[in-house]
Design a binder for these strands. Structure first.
Lengths: 145, 145
DNA sequence: TATTGTTATACTCTATAACTATA
DNA sequence: TATAGTTATAGAGTATAACAATA
């Protein structure tokens, strides 16, 4: 095995400052980290239940309720009872929600690009490609078994 | 800008399962995550104060005290008052501490290698190289300014 | 008075469990 | 009875502030 720091150590070490850098950008858009993750998830596809949304962003279903309340009140998401099963809540992004999401994400990725600029172009492409491959795995696949 | 998920999102998404996968390995060695980080930091070089150690691993100085107590009691670290300034505590790894560290790290990296096996050899090398570059930066450098 | 380590307190985040409404 | 959502409670993890020893 090649001598290197632990993968988890390096990634955790990167994670904290990256999140710290995101927060002020999100705050400018009136978003918390969880609210932003909700917008990202709903932008990919509407969901039929809040539990599915929580699962999708790795949160507990009890933890996103307050954020959903707020996002709905501000008109960034739609959240209506499913007519065919009124226990469930149909969730989707509004046009305004998509606008806020796009604006926040642009600001975030601008900062990230500055960091990526430290890498040689080829490494940078392989790095992003690898990250996308690994981050697309399920938690079980990441862990190993 | 190329269309991609946020860097922070991908990295955070990887971080959690990687840490979850580490914990059972650490537990086999009787280590918590903070205790393990202490061993890693002291393996690189002994330190003269606990505050410096806390800083090195991104912890608050008040938070590592219990772990230092335990590691010292188990003979994994030396922790003696500095003769020239008895307020400070000289910190270093014992031989047994290094043994435990090596054993735990071997187990952790074995798991990580299985994950890295999902990447093409060239990407994998560029990925690790990039990670080492970025993780070596200070938090301020990671954030941008 | 300033600094190192420690202890005590408060606060935030998260997880668990109870409750309601629908089915 | 089972499920989706909600609310309430408890616990872990963290940060802040006060304290004791040494300089």
């Amino acid at each position: 095995m090649t001598d290197r720091p632990d993968l988890a150590a390096m990634i955790s070490r990167l994670s904290r400052p990256l999140i710290d850098a995101e927060l002020p950008v999100l705050r400018e858009h009136g978003l918390s980290m969880w609210a932003y993750m909700v917008l990202l998830a709903l932008d990919e596809r509407p969901l039929r239940t809040q539990a599915a949304l929580a699962e999708a962003i790795g949160a507990d279903k009890t933890r996103i309720i307050g954020f959903l309340d707020d996002l709905q009140q501000r008109g960034l998401i739609d959240r209506t009872p499913d007519p065919t099963d009124r226990r469930a809540r149909l969730l989707s992004l509004t046009a305004e929600g998509r606008r806020v999401r796009d604006s926040a994400q642009a600001g975030i990725q601008r900062k990230e690009e500055r960091l990526l600029g430290r890498l040689p172009e080829e490494d940078r492409r392989a790095f992003l490609r690898s990250l996308q491959t690994l981050a697309a795995l399920s938690p079980e696949e990441i862990v190993g078994e």
